[in-house]
Write a protein that binds this DNA or RNA. Sequence first.
DNA 1: GTAGGGCTTCCTGTCACTGGAAGGTCAAGG
DNA 2: CCTTGACCTTCCAGTGACAGGAAGCCCTAC
Lengths: 130, 130
Amino acid sequence: MNLTIGDVAKRIGLPAKTIRYYEEIGLVDPLRDSNGYRVFRDSDLHKLTFLGRARALGFTINDCRTLLALYEDETRASSDVKAVAQKHLADIEAKITDLQAMHATLSHLAQECSGDGRPDCPILKGLSGG
Amino acid sequence: MNLTIGDVAKRIGLPAKTIRYYEEIGLVDPLRDSNGYRVFRDSDLHKLTFLGRARALGFTINDCRTLLALYEDETRASSDVKAVAQKHLADIEAKITDLQAMHATLSHLAQECSGDGRPDCPILKGLSGG
DNA sequence: GTAGGGCTTCCTGTCACTGGAAGGTCAAGG
DNA sequence: CCTTGACCTTCCAGTGACAGGAAGCCCTAC
């Protein structure tokens, strides 16, 4: 018995919709049964697992495409993989820095806000440029 | 002389496109000159400044709409503002936590990758489930 | 009068899906 | 044999917050 897309979805932990989408954009290419249902080979399952993990680490679909190509290429240089990873690590670090700055500013404002029934509010003052 | 949208954009630090978009979704409502050009009052400039800062702190457009309404409402309770801010702070914290987890996992994998010309790569192994 | 820059609207594209409609397929139960 | 319900299929629209670009009007300077 072939695994249907629902079975694969459960096994991999990705929604069926997402798997169809990955096929549509050419990340996987499952076979078809005579009834039109998708047929997933082991290689498809491996790719989908790979994609699920890469996406969970925050790689873009474009990065995933690159990484998947490297994954499939037995003659790859690990430096190519590492370069993609390090670029992504730098992006993550930049995002964390941004978020921490936002958090610092906003928590400072919130701390000064009494948060009661009165209209006076340092948060709004801060936002309006006060 | 009225300020045109380009002048306002420079002054506030938002692209003109963004200001038009904010008008389209009802966040601001500038007047119009006889030639069709937008005319920005002081109150429009204040609102746009407010929006720019709120967006820079990561508030969604929907939150901005709420905050702007509170900003305009002289009878607001500061607790309402603070609630929005604290919800957003919690979201920021969650995002930072997620990003830090991704960073930890990926930097660990990257550290083990030699990054040379050989095909052997712990990053790909980690992604494929190894 | 013409060249340029800015303004206007409108339409499309981005990213990575998600939701939903319309219709085909399959196994189980009556 | 028929139905029911849970699958599967495709296709279309919407999300958030804009950005890019085309076509055409306006205004100033030379």
